[in-house]
Structures are given as C-alpha cells and as structure tokens.
Design a protein around this nucleic acid. Structure first.
Lengths: 253, 253
DNA sequence: CGCGGCTTTGATCCTTGTCAACTACAGTGG
DNA sequence: CCACTGTAGTTGACAAGGATCAAAGCCGCG
C-alpha cells in the first residue's frame, strides 16, 4: 500500500475496496516540483485541487513589509482547497518548501468523489475540519506559548502527522531556520537559538541542519502537546473495510 | 428583513424566495443566554449546530496554566460546527461573551438544507471557508504584527463583518480588556495601553469602556487591513433574487 | 457603606528583534 | 586546484515590545 492519500483518509474511518481503487486512479499522474516553487499565487482563481504525495508544501502570505508568514504546512497525503470553486480569488499563496511530488485533481473528479463515494466524502470533510483544528492550535501556540515551547509543539505535531501516514523517516523537518521562523512568527536568528536550546536539552537531534526528534515523550511534555486536535482517534479500526487491522504505528496521546 | 442568518448567507450569493422561507423557519425558536456562559465544552460530542442571532460568542481553549486563548469570534449570523457529526469530541469550547440570542439547529435540519437547497448549501460552504480564511488572517496578525496594529486590525475586521450583516450600531466591541487580550494573545494590562494609544491617535473612541471606530480609513491604513480575506465581494448582487437564478450567482474571477 | 470587577498607571524584568560580524560549506569559473 | 560567491548557520551586543507585579481609582450593586 503506497498510496499516502488513501492512508491519510483512513484516519477518518475505514474505506472499502471500491474506494481504494478510485483513490488509486486519482493519484495516478503526479508531477515533480522543486523546492520553493509556487503552486498557486495570491489573487489566482485556481482550477484544480492539489494533493501532496511526497515532500512538504505550505500556505503563506506576504506582508506589506515583504516578510512571509507561513500559515499551514502540507505533508504527504494532505489535500488543499477542496471547495476551490466557492471562494473566488485566493487570499494567500501555496508553494513548495522541499522537492515535492504533487497531483493536480480536477474539480469534477472531486465532485465525483463527493457525490458517489460516501466514505471518501466523509473522510474529505474530516480532513478539512482537521485542517481547521490545526489552524486553531497554531493560533494558540503563537499567542500563548514561548517560542521554545512553540517550536517543540510544531515538531510534535509534524512528527505525529507524519506518523499518521507512515511517512516518519529519519529527518523530520528539512527546513531552513528562516522557514521555521516564518512558521512560528520569529526571526531566523531567534529560531537558531531556540533550536540549539532544544538540542542542548536533549529533546531533538540536529544533523546537517536537519531536525529529528530525540525523545518524543519528553518533547511533548515540554511542549504541552495534546494530540487530540489532530483527531486521529476516530478511525480506530482504520484498515481497509474494517476487517483488516493495519496498525498505524501511532504513538498514543 | 430581520433575518441575520439569511443576510449573512446572501454575502455568498443571491437566495431565492424558497430559500428565504426555509431560513425563516430555521431561526424560529431562539433562546436567550447571558454573558460568559458555555454553549459547548471541550470534550463534548455535540448534537446541534449553533447560530448566533444577536450578541457575541467565541471559540476558546483553556491552557494548562489556566489562561484562555480565544480563537474565533462569532457575530450575528455566524454559524458554527456545520459538520458537527464528523469530528467526535470537541477540541475546544464555545461560549458567549455578551448576552446572546442563539438558535440550536438540529443536525437533520442542516442535512435538509445541504441536500435540498443548493443555494443555501453553497452559502454554508462559503461561510466555513471564510471562517478558515479569518483564522489564517488572525494567525498572520498574531505572528507578524505589533499588538497595536493587531488590535486595530481586529477592530477593522469586526467593523467590516458587522457591516456585512447590517449590525453595525454604535458600540463595536462590548468586551473587557481581558477578553480583548485573550483574543490578541496579550495581557489585559497591555491591552489597556494599546487601546489608549489608539484613542490618543484619534483612531477609535472609547465610551463606558466600549470601543467604536472613529476613522475607519485611518484605522485600516494603520492596521494594513485588506478586507479581501473576508470574501465579501462574491455575492455582489446580494439582494433576494426573485428571478430564481439557480447558478449560485458567483461573480466571475 | 463596603465589596468585587474592571480600568488605569508605574516600575521592573523577560523574551525576542535587530544589527553585525564571523564561520561553514557548496557551487562556479579561472 | 584555488579564489570567489552566495547561502545558511552561529554568536554577541543592544534595543524594544510586552509580561508581570503592585497599587490606586472607578463604578455598580447588595
């Protein structure tokens, strides 16, 4: 099973063989994109929905002073702008952070999934609601936590989200300190200090400027990370069609 | 026309007489609630969708240290948790800030609206997407703007949102400084200093601890407020559309 | 009248931004 | 092979925004 999209949607609940087959078709024609390229610009009126298969992409806004605020991270299996036709112009941009494999899904394919595959529809709605929940958690993080806790919280979230689609390999975040700063709303200089602080506390590893989690439990405790907002518990028997028990390998909350 | 819900939905596009009639039924049985009461608690598995008719409510989270982060403001016409059945437990709470008139809408009424009233369905999806866009803007605000700009931005947003449902009366925000602080992620003491700063600059009025906008243009310029994220342009001809224009009346890009 | 909640103001401390210099390293062209 | 360049990471010094603590004023209400 190498379909991250299906893997992600199974977090919302079981899918049937017909669902799986349809999802296989949907992701059949991916394309490659380099790091730091835009998928959609602020002001565009997009025609397609985008799905990330590998790599990391983000939503961002550019402020009048030229600085960038990253407002969402898109990991493998994440889909964006489900209801792309409803709002007219984009109020933000979407771009890659790393090299990515992306699938463009035409609007009528989405309509077909929503109309004719009730389990997929359910899962897609679930996914947009989780995106919203993540946004709320980021808002709390930004407003109420010190930047070291905030950074730790981000790492816990990404760790958990990647684990939920079986994409948790060695390097957690192949991002520059400036990019991390743009996510957390801090300067790149301060991001550096925070990272070395976390490393010195033995919470994370840094190799070749790549962060990986050293001690997830300690890190979550430090970050006050509570995974409930990711709503990964709903599809408990999240194998195909409820009969097959595919362990998700998630760590418990 | 005293139906704020319909008024709000018309921002997404025109509605037909049948839509209006159905919406009239939906809001027929409101109840009153005092300030600072909870509608839904963190951890609940709610049964109903809530709609604000008058007053101001919010989504919030309580942090381990006991402080509160307000992550969304609900104004007259705003509906919450459209897909209430999809995520299990609430990851946040919803409560009133002021005295409110609220309508509880049963899930099957929502299902009826979504299934049988295409223009209403379109408008409801529009409204959830706008909520998400607001969340993104708050995140940018929180992470990247100084707290005086941030406060000004909030006032501009609320001003614009209230105007969009014809509810813009004298007092913009009947909130305490502590509540404003919980929205912006600052302390109540600092909120006070920011407010007097804005007043001294002639941007806002404060009477009986209530804020109103003095000079909206100057305030928006100060806040770098760009209303595009509220997506109020889509339903340009947003009157009741008696000629039954079924195509959802979106404006061309 | 006194109490409690909210606002106002001052003093001090902590977190983070900004500026600047320096290091490390990969890529490029001589 | 080496100098040159650009990008990212590292470190230090200093300034600013905002938190925290504390005290006083204001006002509605029992």
């Amino acid at each position: 099973m190498n379909n991250v999209f299906a893997r992600k949607l199974r977090n919302a609940g079981p899918l049937g063989p017909d669902d799986m087959e349809r999802l296989e078709q949907v992701i059949s024609d991916p394309f490659e994109l380099g790091a730091r390229e835009d998928l959609i610009h602020h002001g565009d009126d997009p025609e397609n929905v985008h799905l990330v298969l590998t790599g990391m992409a983000c939503r961002y806004k550019i402020l009048p002073d030229g600085s960038r605020a990253i407002v969402a991270l898109m990991l493998p299996g994440d889909i964006c702008d489900l209801h792309v036709a409803i709002l007219g112009q984009m109020d933000h941009s979407i771009g890659t952070l790393t090299d990515c494999q992306i699938v463009r899904i035409p609007k009528n394919t989405i309509a077909d999934l929503l109309d004719n595959y009730p389990r997929i529809r359910h899962a897609l709605f679930w996914s947009t609601l989780v995106d919203e929940a993540i946004l709320r958690e980021w808002l709390v993080n930004m407003g109420r936590r010190r930047s070291d806790h905030q950074m730790a919280h981000l790492f816990c979230e990404v760790h958990t989200r990647l684990a939920a689609v079986d994409q948790l390999y060695d390097s957690l975040m192949p991002l520059t300190q400036e990019e991390l700063g743009d996510i957390l709303g801090i300067s790149s200089v301060h991001a550096q200090r925070v990272i070395s602080g976390l490393r010195n506390q033995g919470l994370i590893n840094v190799q070749d400027s790549r962060v990986s989690v050293q001690d997830f439990d300690a890190l979550s405790e430090f970050a006050e990370f509570e995974a409930d907002y990711l709503h990964l518990g709903e599809g408990r028997a999240n194998g195909v069609d409820a009969t097959a028990e595919h362990g998700a390998g998630r760590s418990p909350a």
